[in-house]
């Protein structure tokens, strides 16, 4: 950053000295009107070049600023995805589906980027089945997700699991569509 500011300063210096030169030239021109056009043209050219360069440089800066902003936004998006994207399971199963593995890989990336974050993995079930068994099943689902993340290099100490069984459905419906959404592991950043 300091280096960039330095360049900018030198650039400004160069521009102002050039502008100074131009204004001097103009004074000269007044004294010799017949040659004015050519002289002005010749002298303005480099100034214009410099300005173009300056604009390019400014655009460059803007691009960098934009990309930082984009990065932050993307980080936000990734964070949102991390929080909002659940992984889903088959009925009475705690094994990870291929789609769930892909989502977990993305979550592992975010976790390795975001070193401080500690996460609670909630295991949930659909309403079918009995409460007691579903509590155990939810525990297994959360543990499956945790184990996968640990295998991808995430420290186990950052990951806590909790089972809610069928007690906290995402969708209160009583049909397969709702049940499919409710058989999930949900990720909460602590």
């Amino acid at each position: 950053m300091a280096k960039r500011l330095g360049t900018y300063f030198i650039l400004l210096l160069a521009i102002s000295s050039l502008l100074f030169a131009v204004s001097c030239a103009k004074t000269k021109v007044k004294s010799e009107p017949s040659e004015m056009q050519e002289v002005v043209t010749e002298e303005e050219m480099p100034a214009a070049d410099m300005q173009i360069e300056e604009i390019e440089e400014e655009e460059g800066l803007t691009e960098e600023q934009l990309s930082a902003q984009e990065l932050a936004e993307r980080e936000g998006v990734l964070r949102d995805r991390f929080v909002n994207q659940d992984i889903h399971f088959e009925f009475d199963k705690s094994s990870l589906l291929p789609e769930a593995r892909e989502i977990l890989k993305e979550k592992a990336e975010w976790l390795s980027m975001t070193r401080g974050a500690a996460v609670t993995i909630e295991g949930h079930c659909d309403e079918r089945g009995t409460n007691d068994y579903n509590l155990a099943l939810g525990d297994r689902r959360a543990e499956s997700a945790k184990r996968f993340l640990v295998d991808l290099g995430i420290s186990a100490g950052r990951l806590t699991t909790v089972s809610y069984g069928e007690e906290r459905p995402f969708d209160p419906g009583h049909n397969e569509e709702a049940w499919a959404k409710n058989r999930r592991a949900h990720f909460v950043i602590e």
Binding site: D132, L135, A136, D139, S163
Partner: peptide
């Protein structure tokens, strides 16, 4: 009784 993880049934 509060061990790590599940404490149920």
């Amino acid at each position: 009784i509060a061990f790590k993880g599940l404490n149920t049934t």
